[in-house]
C-alpha cells in the first residue's frame, strides 16, 4: 500500500526537477513552465498530507482549500508572467534571460 512517504518523496523529486529547470533554462517561457512544475509539487504535497492526516474532516478540507488558493495565485502569476514576457519581447525582440541585464550594475 502506498503511504504518505511515497507521495512526499515524489513531490520532493518533482520540486527539485522544477527547481533545476527554473535555474538552468535560458528562455523565460520555459522558466515559467518549470515554476508550474514546482507549484504542482507543492500541491501534491499538501493534498497527500491532507489525505493521510490523522485529524478531523476539517483538516482535510483545510488542506484542499489551501490548494485552491495556491492554484488561484498560480493562475494570476502565470497571467502576469506571460504579460511581462510579451512586453519584454516587444521591447527587446528576445526572451533570452541572458539579454535582460538592464538592472545589472
Amino acid at each position: 500500500m502506498t503511504g504518505l512517504v511515497h507521495y512526499q518523496i515524489l513531490s520532493a523529486i518533482l520540486f527539485c526537477i522544477g527547481l533545476y529547470g527554473a535555474l538552468s533554462r535560458k528562455s523565460a517561457i520555459l522558466i515559467l513552465l518549470s515554476i508550474e512544475i514546482m507549484f504542482n509539487a507543492v500541491n501534491l504535497n499538501l493534498i497527500s498530507l491532507a489525505a493521510f492526516s490523522q485529524f478531523s474532516q476539517e483538516q482535510v478540507a483545510l488542506g484542499q482549500s489551501i490548494v485552491v488558493f495556491v492554484i488561484t495565485i498560480a493562475a494570476a502569476e502565470l497571467a502576469l508572467g506571460v504579460a511581462i514576457i510579451l512586453r519584454i519581447y516587444k521591447n527587446k525582440s528576445s526572451i533570452d534571460t541572458d539579454n535582460l541585464n538592464l538592472l545589472k550594475w
Binding site: L10, I13, L14, I17, G18, Y20, G21, S24, R25, L30, L33, S34, I37
Partner: peptide, 8 residues
Amino acid sequence: IASAIGVA
C-alpha cells in the same frame, strides 16, 4: 517524473 524531466 519523466514528463517533468522533459519539461526541464
